[in-house]
Design a protein around this nucleic acid. Sequence first.
DNA 1: TGTTGTGAAGTATTTCACAGCC
DNA 2: GGCTGTGAAATACTTCACAACA
Lengths: 212, 212
Amino acid sequence: MSRRIPESTVRRLSHYLRSLEDLGTDEGQTVSSEELAQRGQTTAAQVRKDLSHFGSFGKRGLGYRVDELRIRLRQILGVDRTWRVALVGAGRIGSALFAYPDFNVRGYDVVAVFDNDPTKVGRRWGDVTIRDVRELETVIRDAGVELAILAVPGPAAQELAARAVKAGVKGILNFAPIRLRVPSHVPVEDVSLVMELEALSFAITQAQALDE
Amino acid sequence: MSRRIPESTVRRLSHYLRSLEDLGTDEGQTVSSEELAQRGQTTAAQVRKDLSHFGSFGKRGLGYRVDELRIRLRQILGVDRTWRVALVGAGRIGSALFAYPDFNVRGYDVVAVFDNDPTKVGRRWGDVTIRDVRELETVIRDAGVELAILAVPGPAAQELAARAVKAGVKGILNFAPIRLRVPSHVPVEDVSLVMELEALSFAITQAQALDE
DNA sequence: TGTTGTGAAGTATTTCACAGCC
DNA sequence: GGCTGTGAAATACTTCACAACA
């Protein structure tokens, strides 16, 4: 099992996990692929196919046990543990992210925050002290940081990404509006607000054009 | 031309536009599909196919004129004009978004901000005054708002989305961690940080599993 | 009986490869 | 000669449909 899993499947797995978490915690409760499909905006066949890549943990005639599937999905997505995260950039996006409540709940623990602004360095956010970016490598290594969230302006991002990877970071969530060049074994997820907005304006514009 | 364009193509078009904007503004400058491909992490054939859905604006043997292609891409993506945007939710994410510099540059003009917190209502952000969400419909209609950015907690999001759509909003950028139910002609783009992080932890975990 | 797991069929998207044109 | 535009081939993803089985 487990060949190359497409990005789309991974996103759906996240959805399924989210749905299961909404679904209460009664002992022995089950859920069918049909129910999961409705909550996830997809089809029952798709749900079954997605899950089948990782084994078969449903019961025919019954569905999937909620508690069991939840555990398996956490394992599959790698969130059956806590990830140590560094937030690079303590500007507006950085501070919004830091305050994001779901973060800790979902197993992502921000253990370090960096900025290059001397007036910010040394400040405390919760129990984390903002460090100078010059200390990036040391802190990443010492704290065993595995994921970096890059919330810095475009021009700085490439260099910081490279340094973070060299220091041992295994994956990057990138808010800077550039394509990072990193070794191919380091996954990068881009969050690009402009791109999302353009997808909207495209969809609206396109629909109007077709009306005519 | 212009059948159903897949989401993936739209995202690549955004990339191409971004690349062109990096590319300076010399009169008559051209760029080949190969160059665009390298900047966009895709292939030359893909670039040509993507563009061909909307007409043929390259010159064989020469490539694409940068200035011309830039204009066409802006038209295609619907950003050859200004979109009036309402920001619903003036919390941390909201304020980070509001301050996001690329926003205005790219043709998205935040003309209204809403919150339900009485201590925030009435404050000014730049030249926008934060309004009470109860005024959502009136303001959207009066200001001719076309896009809404939902930066509110999950439980409030569905109702606010429905109200915004009824008041005339044509598309929604959703930061709330729920699947919005809106009429099918209203495009919704979801930004889910947890999902992005899970994609990272999945990729890392998976790679480790394959190593063994 | 009801629902999974899965090959096989059907679509969609990407890549190839080359004629056509600058 | 170089590079686009595009059918045709290849690949990837989704849906169908049904045997298996709790």
